[in-house]
């Protein structure tokens, strides 16, 4: 998490200090700063930090919501690591993150490249492609997804043309996760918009210069577009991975609330939810939540560390 600090630090350092302001000015700045921040500070203390500390405490207790929490040390964590359902949920989530995130981003980037060209109807396409993201994890998504990926439905029929007959994904524990992945990919609107925003900022002159040099479209993509949008790509990778780790709604509606069959769509938060809100094992659920926080923080840290190698921050990009 400390790595994140770099982002705000840079512009702050660049800022020209007002020389004559002096100490009184600085105090006024502090006052103004905290005044502006006061809603956030109140929200942070009341709705984030307080509940966080509470749940961190719960993670080391046995707590059924009714009787006061009872301190059990690391019991929840040891039980959790040995729990086959927890292991299953980790496996399902990792699979989902690793498969869905790159595919979704790839599609979003591809479509963004397509839409970045000035063509008639471009705005309409953009809005239409965003549509699935508007629907979110609505119950109707559950219905349609279960219908599309059932035995002998459109996807299955399409598969059979290629000689792949698995009899529908929804009822099959080995395939249902890919129905979830498909849903994630289908809702590629948000990263697409972010890619579009990034593409828009790539200076046109660079392409013109490259064209004069005789670079083909692939070369131009590789040498200009990709480096220029790498900060956006990084942002998208970060955001989408965090979202993927926390996926809940789509698993919930696609599996008709059970995150099955045979726990095959038991994503991490779904298990957390079952433990916490169905079984009232808040201690266990809190331990799970904190483990997820740590895991996501680690992934974030790794991503931030890796960005030095592949993300190009172009000061002159504007």
């Amino acid at each position: 998490m400390t790595l994140v600090k770099e982002a705000p630090a840079r512009p702050a350092g660049k800022r020209s200090a007002a020389p004559a302001a002096g100490r009184r000015g600085r105090r006024r700045e502090n006052l103004a700063g905290y005044l502006f921040m006061s809603p956030w500070i109140a929200g942070f203390l009341l709705l984030t930090a307080g509940p966080m500390i509470a749940s961190l405490y719960y993670a080391f207790t046995r707590y059924n919501l009714f009787t006061p929490p009872e301190w059990v040390g690391f019991d929840n964590f040891t039980t959790m690591f040995q729990d086959p359902r927890w292991q299953k949920s980790v496996e399902v989530t990792l699979k989902y993150v690793v498969v869905a995130t790159p595919l979704k981003l790839l599609l979003a980037l591809g479509v963004a490249l397509l839409l970045a060209q000035k063509r008639r109807g471009q705005g309409l396409y953009r809005a239409a492609f965003y549509m699935p993201s508007l629907i979110g994890a609505s119950v109707s998504v559950g219905f349609v997804w279960r219908a599309l990926f059932s035995d002998d439905a459109i996807v299955d029929r399409g598969q059979k043309i290629f000689g792949l007959d698995v009899g529908g994904w929804i009822g099959n524990p080995d395939y249902v996760i890919y129905a979830l992945v498909a849903l994630s990919i289908w809702q590629f609107g948000a990263p697409m918009v972010i890619f579009l925003a990034g593409l828009k900022q790539v200076p046109q002159e660079l392409y013109e210069a490259a064209e004069v040099d005789g670079a083909g479209p692939l070369r131009r993509f590789w040498n200009i577009t990709l480096p220029m949008i790498s900060p956006v790509l990084f942002f998208n990778v970060l955001l989408e991975s965090i979202h993927a780790f926390q996926v809940f709604g789509s698993a919930y509606v696609v599996s008709d609330t059970r995150c099955g069959p045979a726990d095959a769509t038991l994503v991490y938060t779904c298990y957390l939810y079952q433990k916490g809100f169905k079984e009232a094992q808040m201690g266990f659920a809190s331990a799970m939540a904190w483990t997820l926080v740590v895991a996501v923080a680690l992934v974030t840290a790794v991503l931030f560390w890796s960005q030095k190698k592949w993300v190009h921050y172009e000061e002159a990009a504007k």
């Binding site: 998490m1 982002a7 919501l65 926080v293």
Partner: peptide
């Protein structure tokens, strides 16, 4: 603030 982005909201729900 950035750190709060990582929190799954379930962890805050009951408190």
């Amino acid at each position: 603030m950035i750190g709060t982005l990582l929190l799954p909201y379930h962890v805050l729900l009951i408190p």
